[in-house]
């Protein structure tokens, strides 16, 4: 699926720097603590990253078009509660899972309609949705967690495929698919074009409104998928789940080199960004760093990553622009 030229482009591109960062981080932790490079711990890290990793896919789409989605954390809770109540009412697992996904997609599409038809800035529309969805999740559940689910659901989190936890396999498959969509399909090309210059894209006859609406629906979809993994893993649906996930997802996208201005970036970068976040958290835990200090460290990594990225970008930009 990935040809040699694409391989070369990945290696030479922006992702290489991020990957190097991840590599150095892992190397440092491997030296610093004997507990890091164990199979059990690495599996754990991968599982940790799967949760935010999945929402970060949708977030990459949204940010590529020049938007932002602050509602995904709340949508995870809402979709989770929908799944939980469906199961509680005795609906079969597939139906419950699908209704959770539908909840995510519908709420996401609403975001999209507010942004496109309503001309609301994405920040505002999704900020509103963040509160609405959280409130809806609390109302539906009466503020209490829902638990006690059939084994079918739990298997989604506990089973393994060739020794790799299912959520990780799911995440990797979704990334591969998203990579394919962004690089090979008409839809993917439109994402970059819209983010790069919405006016020019509309003038080229592309129905920008429709595609932008779709992008927020995709973000809602990835929140729905994330909710399935989370509910299965905790064996419980919680109305206060997913708080702050939107920021972690944005951080993963940004560390991965996708420009918040839209038009440039990649889903591979996002995957690496998500891995950096969870490796960092895990490593700091292993080193016994207080959770307060951890927050400081993660914040600094985000800032430094973007600073480096901007520096690189500016240098490339300047050298090409000034020759004109």
């Amino acid at each position: 699926m990935i040809s040699r030229t694409t391989m070369r482009r990945i290696v030479a591109g922006r992702e290489a720097g991020t990957a190097l960062g991840l590599f150095v981080l892992c190397l440092g932790l491997w030296i610093a603590t004997p507990y890091f490079a164990t199979a059990a711990n690495l599996t754990n890290v991968a599982e940790q990253s799967a949760i935010v990793g999945v929402i970060a896919i949708g977030m990459t789409f949204v940010i590529l078009t020049g938007g932002i989605d602050l509602s995904v954390g709340s949508l995870v809770a809402l979709a989770g509660i929908v799944i939980g109540s469906a199961l509680q009412r005795g609906l079969p697992v597939p139906v419950a899972v699908i209704s959770g996904i539908v909840a995510g997609v519908v709420a996401g599409a609403l975001n999209g309609v507010m942004v496109t038809r309503g001309s609301l800035p994405p920040f505002i529309a999704t900020l509103g949705m963040m509160s609405v969805a959280r409130g809806a999740a609390l109302m539906l559940s009466d503020g209490r967690p829902i638990s006690g689910f059939p084994d079918g659901l739990r298997l989604l989190a506990t089973s393994r495929v060739m020794g790799i936890p299912s959520p990780v396999v799911l995440m990797l498959a979704l990334y591969l698919f998203a990579y394919f969509v962004l690089t090979r399909t008409v839809f993917g090309r439109y994402m970059y074009a819209i983010g790069g210059n919405e006016e020019a894209t509309a003038l080229a006859g592309v129905d920008v409104t429709q595609y932008k609406t779709l992008v927020y629906a995709i973000s809602g979809l990835s929140a729905g998928v994330c909710a399935i993994v989370l509910v299965a893993r905790l064996n419980s649906a919680q109305p206060i789940a997913g708080i702050g996930y939107e920021l972690d997802a944005i951080a993963a996208v940004v560390i991965g080199g996708t420009s918040l201005l839209g038009g440039s970036g990649s889903v591979i970068g996002t995957l690496i960004g998500a891995l950096i976040m969870s490796v960092l958290r895990n490593g700091l835990n292993l080193l016994g760093v207080s959770s307060y200090l951890q927050q400081v460290a993660i914040g600094m990594v985000i800032i430094v990553a973007v600073l480096i990225d901007m520096g690189l970008r500016r240098r490339v930009h300047r050298s090409t622009r000034s020759s004109a």
Binding site: R189, N197, E199, A200, L203, A204, G263
Partner: peptide, 24 residues
């Protein structure tokens, strides 16, 4: 620059933009 081109994309992507669905 404002309406004609997506400056951050390649020559190829720009030329193909209005006919992508035909090329797919």
């Amino acid at each position: 620059k404002g309406e004609g081109l997506v400056l951050s994309r390649s020559v190829r992507d720009n030329v193909a933009l209005p006919i992508l669905s035909r090329l797919a």
